[in-house]
Computed example of a mutant assay.
Amino acid sequence: MINYIIRRVLQTIPIILGVAFIVLVLFTRVGEDPVRMKLGNHATPEAIEELRAKWDLDKPLGTQYLIFLKQIATFDYGESFNSGEQLSEMFANGAYASLLLTVPPFFGGILINLSIAVLIAFYRGSWIDRYSTALFVAGMSISYMVYIMFFQYFFAYELGWFPINGFESGLGAIPYLILPWIITLIVNAGPQIRLFRTVFLDETKADYVRTAFAKGCSPPRVMFVHIMRNAMIPILTYTVIEIPNLILGAFLIERFFSIPGTGDILISGINNGDFPIIKGLTVLIAISFTICNMITDILYAYVDPRVQLEG
């Protein structure tokens, strides 16, 4: 196991190096000139050169690449081109807000939707299965934006049960997050339950299920013990791969509820042409996905003994 972990960590290094190089080239050689975007088309050559030197954009590409790698290793991405704030502090504060927004409904929703999917799969072919499938398909057909606008208008504006926007640190954030949590739970319910139901139904066709029934195991025991354990690999894959998105936040929710998460920071950076923000968050997302892929492979061994990591 240790050898496998070391090998996977070493394999991530070329991926991160490649992503960093591609991101640097895209934002310094292909995209618009950030100096021109900051100063405008009527800036003097002296002002342009001074700002270009301040942002290290006058250096060769290789030197800029080494500077970028140092920023990644030290988590010090410099300053925002527009506000002058330290990006490390901005990212940390944004990640804190995004995690408060996304983690509770994600993991709570996983447990709730997993339980519902098991129940539906257990009663497959019944009226419970048919009506629930129709309900979740209908829910998936409604736009995310529609949920946000309806819940904000009805529960926040008309009934006044929740604040419509804002954010505070600590426990003071809960009143501002309840409505976004509810919206996230409802939006994620349909896709997750349909995915989990499909996984469980695929497992019911396996040979070990027939063997378990032949040995006299009851249907609940087969479903909740044998099938549940073997169905965990695709469920683990889905869960762990989604973790980087929790850090990235929910763009629409953060934007419409004025929550200062990383998603809102990224959108603002794109709108303002703030390339350090875009570069930093792009690399952080790539690193997060790479690490989560590695964690997924390691967890496979604990769920399915047939997986041989040392081979």
Rank of each mutant, 00 (worst) to 15 (best):
L171I: 15
N113K: 05
Q71M: 10
S80F: 05
F257E: 04
M228P: 04
K54E: 13
V199Q: 05
V187W: 03
A231I: 03
F21V: 13
A43C: 09
S88R: 14
P244G: 05
Y176V: 06
V283P: 01
D129G: 08
A189Q: 01
V225G: 02
D76I: 00
R229T: 11
E50Q: 13
I227N: 07
G280Q: 06
S98G: 09
H226L: 12
L281R: 01
Q11V: 00
R8S: 08
V103T: 11
S80D: 04
P244N: 05
N113I: 04
E50N: 10
L135R: 03
M140I: 01
G108V: 06
V35Q: 02
P175M: 14
G269R: 00
G62S: 14
D58G: 12
I291H: 09
Y300K: 14
S115G: 12
P175N: 13
S268A: 11
P234K: 06
L100K: 12
R306C: 10
L281E: 06
D304P: 10
A92H: 00
F27E: 07
L185T: 02
Q192A: 11
R255T: 12
I120K: 01
L195M: 14
T198A: 15
Q308T: 09
F196C: 02
M90R: 10
R52G: 10
P234G: 09
T44F: 10
I247G: 03
P163D: 07
L179N: 02
G84L: 03
N188M: 13
T239L: 15
G311A: 13
E46Q: 12
L17W: 08
S143A: 14
L201Y: 04
P244Y: 01
M228C: 12
K70L: 10
S132T: 15
G166P: 05
P163C: 08
I22P: 05
M294G: 05
I267V: 14
I193F: 01
K38D: 00
E49D: 14
T237G: 15
V307Y: 13
L10Q: 11
I267T: 09
T290M: 09
K38V: 14
I5G: 05
I142L: 11
F167Y: 15
A212N: 11
N3I: 00
I295V: 15
Q71I: 03
E85Y: 07
I182F: 12
W181I: 05
A301H: 10
R210L: 13
L252P: 02
L111P: 06
V199Y: 03
Q71W: 08
V19I: 14
M223Q: 04
I13L: 14
F257M: 07
T12D: 03
V209D: 08
S288L: 10
V199L: 10
A231Q: 05
F155H: 03
V30S: 10
S98R: 04
M140P: 02
A20T: 15
S218E: 12
I183Y: 01
R194W: 02
I243R: 07
P191F: 02
I116Q: 02
L61G: 06
I22C: 13
I16P: 05
A117I: 11
A73H: 07
L61P: 07
V222R: 07
A92P: 00
A206I: 02
L26R: 03
M228H: 11
D304F: 09
F122N: 02
L17P: 11
I48V: 15
S169E: 07
C292K: 05
